[in-house]
């Protein structure tokens, strides 16, 4: 479904992603595991097209020069030069790092903003569906998003990306800054989303322990390079991964 072929991204002279090739098949949950500065967020931004926008902005103000090589294709179509909004229309939706929500709007308004592409009846249906997946959001529906806790904001952020009707959902560090209990809950809902909505999910994380059991396949990134690739189980039992990402 998604093919990333020999992707290279340079920030000025520093290389962020080096000859990375990954593949995501329909219906899978694929994990990208890597420590800080491994290039996870860059990869997510490149796949979602946000990096093209950053590139243009930097170019106009003469800042960092971003260079992208390689090919990204989605559903057999080359999307390397497509803008982020077009990619969203094709079904690639990114839930960004650090759960960005519209802090001045309440939860329901946030979901409505995210459903810009849908018709009204579909939107209502979708909102109900999201409340079903995240029942914790129901009592908060009239609360301003800025007053939610980190976990609730993360649920809302994932809910917002679901509203855009994704076929491929990119989750950038969904567990960042959450307590272990909430992490487990969130992972459960991610599995539920895959099962019920039939959404393919690409999730990148540095907390490998809660993520590895639920993913079908995983890639391990280090300094922008692919070091390991295997099924979730293989990676879970790999002693190197245990030493590096489990903290044991």
């Amino acid at each position: 479904m998604l093919n990333v072929d020999k992707l290279m991204v340079f920030y000025e002279n520093a290389i962020a992603i080096n000859e990375l090739s990954i593949e995501v098949n329909r219906g899978e949950i694929v994990g990208i595991i890597g420590s800080n500065s491994a290039g996870k967020t860059t990869l997510m931004n490149t796949i979602s097209g946000l990096l093209l926008d950053t590139k243009l902005k930097e170019q106009r103000k003469g800042g960092e020069r971003i260079t992208i090589f390689g090919r990204i294709s989605f559903l057999e179509r080359d999307i390397t030069d497509l803008w982020a909004d077009e990619r969203v229309k094709m079904g690639i939706v990114l839930s960004r790092e650090r759960h960005p929500v519209f802090v001045e709007s309440d939860v329901e308004e946030n979901l409505k903003i995210a459903s810009y592409l849908l018709s009204r009846p579909v939107m209502r249906e979708k909102i109900e569906y999201i409340y079903k997946i995240f029942p914790a959001l129901v009592p908060l529906r009239k609360r301003k998003a800025g007053f939610l806790s980190g976990g609730e904001q993360q649920m809302l952020a994932i809910g917002m990306s679901l509203m855009a009707n994704p076929t491929l959902m990119l989750l950038d560090e969904p567990l960042l800054g959450l307590s272990p209990a909430i992490q487990v809950k969130l992972i459960e809902s991610i599995v539920a989303i895959r099962k019920e909505a039939g959404v393919t999910i690409l999730i990148c994380e540095q907390f490998a322990r809660p993520v590895l059991p639920v993913i079908d396949r995983g890639y391990v990134l280090e300094n922008g390079m692919l070091t390991l690739h295997g099924t979730g189980e293989e990676l879970y039992n790999n002693p190197e991964i245990k030493a590096a990402y489990f903290g044991v």
Binding site: M8, F10, E12, N13, R65, T67, F69
Partner: peptide, 9 residues
Amino acid sequence: ENYRKERIA
């Protein structure tokens, strides 16, 4: 072949 513009201080 891919070429990239490099900046050197």
